[in-house]
Every structure is written in structure tokens, then in C-alpha cells.
Amino acid sequence: MQFGIFTVGDVTTDPTTGRTPTEAERIKAMVTIALKAEEVGLDVFASGEHHNPPFVPSSPTTMLGYIAARTERLILSTSTTLITTNDPVKIAEDFAMLQHLADGRVDLMMGRGNTGPVYPWFGKDIRDGIDLAIENYNLLHRLWREDVVDWDGKFRTPLRSFTSTPRPLDGTPPFVWHGSIRSPEIAEQAAYYGDGFFANHIFWPKEHFMRLIGLYRQRFEHYGHGSADQAIIGLGGQVFMRKNSQDAVREFRPYFDNAPVYGHGPSLEEFTEQTPLTVGSPQEVIDKTLTFREHFGDYQRQLFLMDHAGLPLKTVLEQLDLLGEEVVPVLRKEFAALRPAHVPEAPTHASLLAARKETVR
């Protein structure tokens, strides 16, 4: 099972000091966090894609390429690549280039994006969000698998005898996760292609995501990719830890209360009860994360949000030390012991390449 972190790249004022980092400080902090993730033994670093303040990661492949040059084994991913407002041709080329630079340590997560004003900035209409996601991904899927593509669609100009370059590394496209917090159409899309489904269930109660994941599993089997329990699933999570639970709650509360997404809403205690957010000791994080398998079945990737809401870099790095030293080793052991032999691990470039070679033999 893969463990890692994801960032949304928000530039948020620290509510305890009143200081707001500059964009340059925040971008460099994200790089530092990625390097720390590899140092403490995590598997994945994933960046969001946003084009509106207070977020800075508008060009994930640029940052991930830089991180690739400074790491050796970390899988570089996105926690959203906007399949709706990006040109599929540019996605195909950018991520194939990143694949080559990172020696295959690349995958990506497709998302629609839920910020209405962003759509017209790129000449799109949010009311077409689902249709854009379906059509654009169909084209991207073909661009990575066909050397010459002829294509007609609704939302972009036709392609005639087009070859995306560079071609995917070793003829093996990056693995794709389809991320969703509410759309059954996206779960269906992931199942149709036999791709992964990432349920970023950090904001809503588990019952909602149990239905989405259940649909994906059912349709994954329907389309002949394997049994329902072999479907490839990733989950989000958010934690804040201190050795003593009371210290964790006291320190994190002002950040929670003023967070740009969920601040000034439900209380910390209500949110912790209803969502995966865990604020407490490392053991409490272990205990709650293990319950995810009870709710959603065996899954392949667990990503934690660690740097949200204005937390200072020093604090985030301390969190990563706790995650890498005290939490993830236990979770690896426990999840491995529980996982049936027929349930696959998370796909990597090496495993996809091996499967491709086996298919053509």
C-alpha cells in the first residue's frame, strides 16, 4: 500500500501570528515538504492544480519536475489535474515529458474542479463540467495509446493524423486516478477505463463516499477489469498530531477555525466525528485510519493533507516526522496483514510495464 501526502497549496495567514507567507515562500515550502516526505519514507507527493487565489500551484508539472530532479524514489502525482479546463493534448505532452524526467515516477489524478469562475478563464462553462471530463479524458486516453490520432469532439478543434510527443515512457502511459467528492459519473468513468478512483473524503461524512466507492467497485467488475474487491482505490485524510492529544487539539484549533475551506463552520469536534480528520496522538491517527478499510474495503493509496490552513513550515515538518516514524510503519504492517493475496497493490510504472509486456507475449 502506498502512503503519501497531498497539498492544495493555499497561501493562508497564520492565525496565531498574523503572518502571511509570500507566494515564493509557499512554493518553496511545498518543495521542502516533498523532500521531507521522501526522507521520512513516504511513497507519494501530490500537488493540486488551482488558478485562483489563495492558491499557488497553477503549474503542477513545473514543480513536480523540479522535485523529480531532487528525489530518487518518491512518486510524483497530482491531487487534481483539471481535465475540464486543460487541453488534453497539453496534458498528454506535459505528463509524458515529466515521466521521462522522473524515470517513470509519475501518475496523476483527474478532477473537474469546482470553482465556477475558473471555467470561463479558460473558455469553458462549468455547466459542461461532466461532459468536458468525459470527452477530454477519452481523447487523452487515446493520445497516450495511439501513435496517430484522428479525433472529432464537441469542445475542441478536430485532430488529424496527430502524434502527441514525447510518447509515454516505455510505451506505458502514467496511471490515472479519477478524483471525485460527489459525482457518480466520475466513478463510472474510472470503472469504465479500469483506472483508479480517488475519494477525497476529507470534507463529507463517510456514508456518502461508501456509496460512491461501492458504485465504482460494482462497475469496475461489470466492465471486466477484475472482481469488485480488486478495484483500485485511493483515499484522502487529514491529521494533526502531538504526543499528547490535548496538546494537538489546543494547537490545531485556531488553524481549523480559520481554515479557508471549512473554517467558521462545524466545530473541530463535530468535523472530527463526521470526517476522516484526526487531531490527536499518533496512536489515534493509526486507529482511525485503520477504520477506513472497514468502511471502504481494501484500498491501495492513502494520502494525508498536512500543510493546510496556514500551518508554519516548521510545524508541518514536525508532523511529517511523526507520520513517517510512528504512524506509517504501523499502518503498512497492519494493512498488509489484512489485505487478501488477490487484491492488487497500487500500480507503478514498473508494474504497469511488466503487465504490458506480459500481455504482448
Rank of each mutant, 00 (worst) to 15 (best):
L159N: 08
K333E: 10
K357Q: 12
R156F: 13
P276R: 05
I202C: 02
K124W: 09
Q238F: 11
P21C: 03
G104D: 02
S79P: 02
R112I: 14
N114A: 15
F45A: 04
D87Y: 03
E188T: 15
G113P: 00
T348S: 12
S47G: 14
A133F: 11
K90M: 13
D152S: 13
T78R: 09
V249A: 06
E358A: 14
D128F: 13
G129E: 14
F240Y: 14
K90Y: 05
G171T: 09
F55A: 15
T163K: 07
W151P: 04
F220P: 05
Q230P: 11
G116D: 13
H100S: 15
P173K: 00
D257F: 05
F3Q: 04
S164T: 06
W204T: 14
P166A: 03
V279M: 02
G104E: 02
R211W: 15
I83A: 09
N136M: 06
L132H: 03
P57Y: 00
R156N: 10
E188A: 15
E221Y: 05
E269D: 15
P57L: 14
A34W: 01
A355D: 01
D257T: 03
Q230D: 04
G265N: 08
L303C: 04
E294V: 10
S183M: 11
F256A: 10
F197K: 03
L139H: 00
Y66D: 09
E93K: 11
D107K: 01
H178F: 13
G41A: 10
